[in-house]
Write a protein that binds this DNA or RNA. Structure first.
Lengths: 145, 145
DNA sequence: CGGGTCACTTGCAAAATGATAGTAACTGCA
DNA sequence: TGCAGTTACTATCATTTTGCAAGTGACCCG
């Protein structure tokens, strides 16, 4: 058994959470999507400690969710952009937002508006095979081997 | 500004993550969905330290994602069931699983099979308004006030 | 030369996590 | 009656992570 096999296991949820299973990482991703691509923008937006943010950004860059882009040669400065892997995670953030909006607290909320329709998006997770919302049909687990 | 307003903010993603923004909580939810509803079942499945699991289960119960049900009067024993709030989160776990399966590591994976079709589900987050996948259309943030 | 900006690093305290052992309330068996 | 076994924890303590505050380095601008 290699290290990778041992550490990763066969559960894809577990695998996913190994890369981004913490609050700050997800909030950083959210901020980058919003256009806050620089260290200080993210730091002031989140109110996160500077050493923690530096560590998170390094980890997200290392795991390939973000990438650095040099926007100034002198002084040398980078900003952080989403990779495809990172962009692919954004719909999950939207789904978490939908859940949080529905189930946590009350009052006014920030919303994501579809630019064309002008309506707030209502993220739902469906099965691309059937089009049915996940949870509306019976499922069974299948283990490898 | 009330405590609630101060602590929650207006971002629904932030709100959601306040309740379940950690790895263990999500994995506990996954296990309960799989039918592991008892303390020892979850503990051995996850390999989590007993004090940590006890704390997580208490937190998830407190925040209303799980509820205790007495399954034995003598000796007094409870198992943990998903509430509606908890069940509502499961599609997000499925989406995280889809992302993890696609982007993290290789090799064989546990899959969720639709019992009727026999096919592995392919979770995708769409906008219920347009039916389009989140990410395929331009969005804009709208702040309250 | 003296601020100001930006992106951090360093040092240390506080909090969370994790390993290990122990406890409580039983049941079932001899 | 006694003792092992099951289940669901709690208690204690070491390790790890997080967070705060202050400092650093590389510049630019006046």
């Amino acid at each position: 058994m290699t290290d990778d096999e041992k550490n990763l296991g066969t559960c894809p949820i577990d695998r996913g959470l190994t890369l981004i299973g913490d609050r700050w990482s997800m909030l950083v991703l959210r901020d980058v999507q919003r256009g806050l691509t620089r260290y200080d923008q993210i730091r002031t937006s989140l109110g996160i400690a500077p050493n923690i943010l530096a560590r998170r950004l390094a980890a997200l860059t290392e795991t390939g969710l973000l990438e650095k882009r040099r926007y100034s040669q002198r002084p040398p400065r980078d900003d952080y952009l989403l990779t495809e892997k990172g962009r692919d995670f954004l719909p999950i953030l939207a789904a978490i937002g939908a859940w949080g909006g529905k189930h946590v607290g009350g009052g006014a909320l920030t919303r994501q508006i579809d630019v064309e329709t002008g309506e707030a998006v209502r993220p739902v997770v469906i099965d691309a095979n059937t089009g049915a919302p996940i949870g509306s049909r019976a499922l069974r687990l299948e283990y490898p081997d």
